[in-house]
Design a binder for these strands. Structure first.
Ligand SMILES: [Mn+2]
Ligand SMILES: [Mn+2]
Ligand SMILES: [Mn+2]
Ligand SMILES: [Mn+2]
Lengths: 138, 138
DNA sequence: ACAGAAGTTTAGCCCGTGCTACAATTTGGT
DNA sequence: ACCAAATTGTAGCACGGGCTAAACTTCTGT
């Protein structure tokens, strides 16, 4: 038995979620920025996440190595097909969580903050329930 | 204006949540283990989180420095008053999130996994709504 | 009493993500 | 064309949290 009544598994899963969280937020941000201002530059990401451009730069480099982003020196940042797919999935999931919180009666600002952290820890099963729920309560 | 319609603030908050997440999970675990087997040893924590005993050791040391845990070389691990208060708050919050997921119709295992990650990102406002909701839907 | 098992500590490594300071490149205005 | 500003890149630091290996202490059974 690998799982059963183990206390450890939830923590393993949470750690795994955290490991992919940055990638998810970055592809989502790149997609959003591109859709808003045509091109996504490093500065845009740094501002978006309120981190230094150095931090953003290293994360972009890593995500490029992982096949999610594409860029060349001093050039704008683009999404690979794989990155685009991930961004879509994340945007949808993010929106479902956000709208669910709104449907609960939370104010927009709080909902935005909570959703930003919660989204990465919502399983597909739970996501479907949240979606049903937000719809039904309308 | 510090906030207004800023994209950055949710990410700042999520990073802050992550910084306190380990502390929250550890004091909660120590409290739970003590209530179950009298004393909490390093091995217990290592098993609980599925982490090497070395990792657990360093985290315990840090949390002791921060005033949440108390221990002496080769001795069991205890909670300081401050740690106890934090553990209580976290257990309550954790349970509310967990029970809410159950009330949504999620199976226990999935609910346990999702709750473990979600709990740290739920604001007091949202927590109150989740609590109301889980109660009402019973 | 004492050897071996169990538990704990320490040393030393890796990786991710945060930073400042500084260098290099590109862009824009005159 | 050229200088200055904006942008991007690089060097080098910190910290948290993951690991293995090896030393040390404590517990246990004979
Ligand atoms: Mn997010
Ligand atoms: Mn998270
Ligand atoms: Mn918890
Ligand atoms: Mn947790």
């Amino acid at each position: 038995m690998t799982g059963s009544s183990n206390k450890a598994e939830p923590h393993r899963r949470t750690r795994r979620d955290h490991a992919t969280e940055t990638a998810e937020d970055y592809v989502e941000a790149v997609a959003e920025i591109i859709s808003e201002r045509e091109t996504c530059r490093l500065v845009d990401l740094a501002k978006y996440f309120a981190v230094s451009h150095v931090t953003a730069n290293r994360i972009v480099a890593r995500l490029q190595k992982e096949g999610l982003l594409q860029t060349e020196p001093y050039q704008p940042i683009e999404l690979t097909p794989q990155g685009k797919r991930l961004a879509d999935r994340c945007r949808q999931r993010h929106e479902i969580v956000y709208r669910f919180l709104l449907s609960l009666g939370i104010d927009k600002k709080t909902a935005a903050i909570d959703a930003e952290g919660i989204e990465h820890h919502v399983s597909p099963k739970t996501l479907r329930k949240l979606e049903q729920w937000a719809k039904q309560s309308k």
